[in-house]
Simulated assay, not measured.
Amino acid sequence: MSAARFYVSGKVQGVWFRASTREQAVGLELRGYANNLRDGRVEVLAAGDAAAIERLAQWLRHGPPNARVDRLEREPAGEDEAGDGFVCG
């Protein structure tokens, strides 16, 4: 098991980014969350299989059709931060 925190910058709020991220994460059997931040970024925490997290990271580089991802930052995270399921805040 593995965990990672992502910060996604660009046109990522108001374009169904969090809901689409949740769809992707649930399909990959990941736990965690996607939250809007006050500075316009989206924070994503994902925990689960390392290969599934990598697939989510690849998807986050582009996001849903109406999004524009300018930057994707990644840092380690603790699995215990993820909770159960995958939620949007």
Rank of each mutant, 00 (worst) to 15 (best):
G10C: 05
H62Q: 10
Y33L: 13
R71M: 05
L56M: 12
E73C: 03
D84G: 07
A52V: 02
P76M: 10
Q58T: 12
L60Y: 01
K11P: 00
D49K: 11
E43L: 01
R41Y: 01
G27Y: 00
K11I: 13
G32Q: 10
V42I: 09
D39L: 10
V69H: 02
L45S: 03
R74K: 15
L37H: 02
L45K: 04
G48F: 02
R68C: 11
R71D: 10
A47P: 03
G14I: 00
C88D: 10
R41G: 00
A67L: 04
A52Y: 01
A51G: 13
A34S: 05
S20A: 14
Y7H: 14
G78T: 10
G78H: 14
A52S: 15
G40S: 08
W59T: 06
G83S: 07
G32S: 09
N36Q: 10
A47K: 05
V12K: 06
E29Q: 14
A67H: 03
R41E: 07
V15H: 06
Y7L: 09
L28W: 05
G85E: 09
R22N: 07
R31Y: 00
G48R: 03
R71W: 01
G63C: 00
N36K: 07
R74M: 15
G10K: 07
F86C: 08
Q24K: 15
G32V: 06
G40W: 07
G63R: 05
K11Q: 15
G14T: 04
G83P: 01
E29K: 15
E75F: 03
V87N: 10
G48H: 00
E23W: 14
A57Q: 00
E29W: 09
N36S: 06
E54L: 04
L30I: 07
L28E: 12
V8P: 02
R55N: 11
R41P: 02
L56C: 04
Q13C: 07
V8L: 03
D49H: 04
G63D: 03
Y33Q: 11
A50E: 15
F86T: 08
Y7F: 12
I53G: 04
T21W: 00
A34C: 10
G78F: 09
Q13M: 08
E29T: 12
R68L: 13
A57L: 01
R38N: 13
G85A: 08
L72I: 06
E75A: 15
E54Q: 12
H62N: 13
C88Y: 04
W16P: 05
E29H: 14
V15K: 01
R41V: 01
G89W: 07
V42A: 09
R18Q: 04
L72R: 13
A52P: 01
E79A: 10
A4M: 06
W16T: 12
A50M: 09
R74E: 13
T21F: 00
A77S: 08
Y33F: 14
P76R: 15
V12F: 05
P64Q: 05
E29A: 15
L30M: 09
R31S: 14
L56T: 03
P64Y: 03
E81L: 12
G14P: 00
W16F: 14
N36W: 02
M1G: 11
L60F: 02
E75W: 03
T21H: 00
G27K: 05
A46E: 11
E79V: 14
E54D: 15
E54M: 04
G63H: 01
E29F: 11
R31F: 02
Y33V: 12
V44S: 10
A77I: 03
D49W: 05
E43N: 06
R31I: 05
R41W: 01
V26H: 08
G40E: 11
